[in-house]
Design a protein around this nucleic acid. Structure first.
Lengths: 149, 149
DNA sequence: CTTATATAGTTCGGCCACGAACAAACGTCA
DNA sequence: TGACGTTTGTTCGTGGCCGAACTATATAAG
């Protein structure tokens, strides 16, 4: 039994695998509560929309979630197809498209919070608080180190 | 100036951003040495092929890199288009397709090693050895915690 | 007011990634 | 040898993700 994907590529591989395992976990949980059409990638958009109380321009979503415009266009389109969000023209600026959650979209908030909590719990397991803090601190450090420029 | 993508989603977001920054770094480095057609995702395949001295069946690649068959088919096809690998039928089993690096593919090994080294150096920065070890240890722990089942 | 420039979104083509369906070759067993 | 089931890869459809090109509206400059 050789090391499957594991144990390769050092810390980079570890990071990549942790991300994938997290996504896998999320997909599984979403299926468990019978939420359809939602992928982990939608999380950043939805979480952002959850904390808005007025329709938001595309541009703002683009800036917040760190994806390019065309990607957001596609994702919003998908969310719209499934009835989670709604697009409406801005009355003030003919160029901008506003996005807002539908009822169905709003209903995702509680399960999302729940799944998020569950994921964090699962991820940390029985790790001591000092270790959690230390981990986040170290990650913050390497995230800073990798910052472009 | 609000937090762009940063500071969101806690440790999961951090992990995701670190992965993306790493990929960005790799893409930049590849461009710097004028390597075309290679994406970070190809790394696992190429690194695997680098340490083989005989043509390898698709199946083995699939097992090692942790992607499904259809994904590997596509990626190998891309690498073939760019002339980095070559596909040949197995003389022993009519079903299997063997993959081997071309000269051009082999020539990627040194720059890959170099870039890998550079990335690790950049990522850790001036972090103390004990901290690096501690970080890897903690990551190993959460990777274990996330393991399905 | 008209022209030029900037900004907001969409469209398109390419690639990774997945799952499902499929074809081809192999193995077994009768 | 012939039928059945397994194994290996490919194909196809869906979607995220990117960059480049494009449209439409808004703003600035003359």
């Amino acid at each position: 039994m050789t090391t499957n994907p594991p144990n390769t590529q050092g810390i980079i591989g570890q990071i990549a695998r942790i991300r994938e395992l997290s996504n896998l976990f999320i997909e599984l949980e979403l299926r468990n509560v019978a939420i359809e059409g939602i992928l982990p990638a939608h999380g950043s958009i939805l979480n952002f929309l959850f904390q808005q109380d007025a329709p938001v321009p595309m541009k703002e979503i683009v800036e917040r979630i760190g994806r390019v415009k065309s990607t957001v266009t596609g994702m919003i389109h998908t969310l719209e197809q499934y009835g989670y969000v709604e697009k409406l023209p801005s009355p003030e600026d003919g160029r901008v498209v506003l996005v807002k959650l539908t009822e169905k979209g709003c209903s995702l908030k509680p399960p999302f919070k729940q799944i998020s909590k569950k994921l964090i719990a699962r991820l940390y397991g029985n790790m001591a608080v000092e270790q959690k803090d230390s981990l986040v601190e170290l990650l913050t450090q390497i995230e800073g180190n990798l910052q472009p420029m």
